[in-house]
Design a protein around this nucleic acid. Structure first.
Lengths: 162, 162
DNA sequence: GAGAGACTACTCGGATACAGTCTGTCCGAGTAAATCCGG
DNA sequence: CCGGATTTACTCGGACAGACTGTATCCGAGTAGTCTCTC
């Protein structure tokens, strides 16, 4: 059970988009080159973000993507769920219903205890991701990235931004 | 990103095995019939538990599986990791290294901030699963399952146990 | 110089392969119980 | 009747296919800005 690589890509792209000046757009091509990723496939991840309403897109030359909200209002969970889907990581097939000792017509009043425990764990995972805003990520990255590289990168981005 | 169905099966099987008297074994066939599962495939889940050292197996007639430890010493995480593997749910491809602005020979001192955040979330998920022992599950199940069904089930199991 | 039409660059979506994993099945190796045979 | 060797029945464990999802690529349709050509 591993998250798709698109999750990582989407997070990196959002971090870049968060540093984009208001009103500017950055194309899939630029994002793909910046991260060394296949453009066509990366576009699928960005489409997911777009469909989830996290980013806004514009067509035509100098088109591309920008964030649809402020970085403070976007959480890790928003991005992860946009790509990975919102369904829980544990699905309960309710196999207890197959117990041959079970009286016919017996109906379970509540979900299986196993499922509830697994869902609780799933929920703390999601909560942890909800607690981190995109702005927090940008702060961390700017602190940990060498000053020169950070500056060069955003110069590069601005040259490519429409 | 969804856990395999074998995880659910393994948890249910361990709950049954936890109710088995000391020294008795229960076969894959019995566990499969009890849960309405394909015997051959369920055996793969049990093999995983066996390889992880969570259960002990015996061959021959009246052979099968029993827990290798006390239910208090087995956690949800043990069982989940035995089936699903211990690797993290987020893998970092370190795509920041592909940044064309990066000076040659630059070496990252620490893992990417994105990976660290994702790994923290992964860790709280695991911790939540670590906090629940198999004995806790059995307690919950015995409380929530109708008395008669609970009794009949273990009678059925004891008749099949070698 | 201004406006209309053609052109270009980009996004978006669908169609199409390829690979890896999950699901499911089969058969062989090995063992414990049961049986058989000799004493 | 008893004990040991043999047979048998049953188990686990690994090897072997099919289905599904994730990964990756390509191409066409639609759009907005740009360019060109005409008046």
């Amino acid at each position: 059970m591993v998250l798709k690589s698109q999750v990582e890509w989407a997070l990196h792209c959002c971090a870049i988009l968060a540093g984009l000046p208001e009103g500017r757009y950055l194309s899939t091509k630029a994002l793909a080159e910046l991260h060394g990723l296949p453009k066509e496939y990366l576009s699928k991840a960005l489409q997911s973000l777009s469909q989830a309403g996290l980013v806004h897109s514009t067509l035509g030359p100098s088109g591309g993507y920008r964030l649809a909200k402020q970085p403070e209002e976007l959480t890790f969970l928003d991005i992860v769920e946009a790509v990975e889907g919102t369904s829980r990581t544990f699905v309960c097939a309710n196999i207890r219903a197959n117990n041959p000792c079970r009286p016919k017509g017996h109906c379970d009043s509540s979900p299986c205890a196993i499922a509830r425990i697994m869902w609780e764990a799933d929920e703390v995972w999601r909560q942890k991701l909800r607690d981190v805003a995109l702005s927090d990520l940008v702060k961390r990255l700017s602190r940990e990235t060498p000053r020169a590289l950070w500056k060069d990168t955003f110069e590069w981005v601005l040259n490519r931004a429409g």
